[in-house]
Amino acid sequence: MKWMGMGLLLGASLWLARVMARPYRLRVAALDDWRQMLGQLEPLIGWRQMPLAEAFARAARTHPGRQRAVASLVGSLGSRDEDFATAFSRALAADSALFAEDREALMALAPVLGKSVAGYQVQHLADVRGDIERILAEARQYGLKKARLVESLVSVAGIAAIILLI
């Protein structure tokens, strides 16, 4: 019985550690997806001049984690009743892996995307992609470090509790 309790406690602490570290890992994956999507949007908008909804849907094809947010954007634009900024803000809100700072950086696109000739659009996308790359680098360096720290602390706490039980 005692050994079973110890095993359960160890399992729970490891699970809790992973759950607590998960947002940091998901954030890195989400930022990487957005970085890649912005890179894909550049030729879709700049060269193919695809309408925004179609371009976002195409860019999201290879990023399953972002498809919910992009589906929200495409749906809002398709309803013809929302402006792009509102629809984009709603889409970013639907992407729960992003942190507030990430959404703020991406929202820089809202007032300008779709509103000028292709050359300027590509420039705007490149600027925001640069910001996302910077945030991603920080998230990889500090966020993942924090994730590992949280995992370690929670796991160590679990092991400490087991030792105390013994």
Partner: peptide, 15 residues
């Protein structure tokens, strides 16, 4: 707003 909706929020595609 009307023009933006008519061009699918994509002025660049209709320049």
């Amino acid at each position: 707003r009307i023009l933006a909706v008519l061009v699918d929020h994509s002025i660049y595609a209709r320049v």
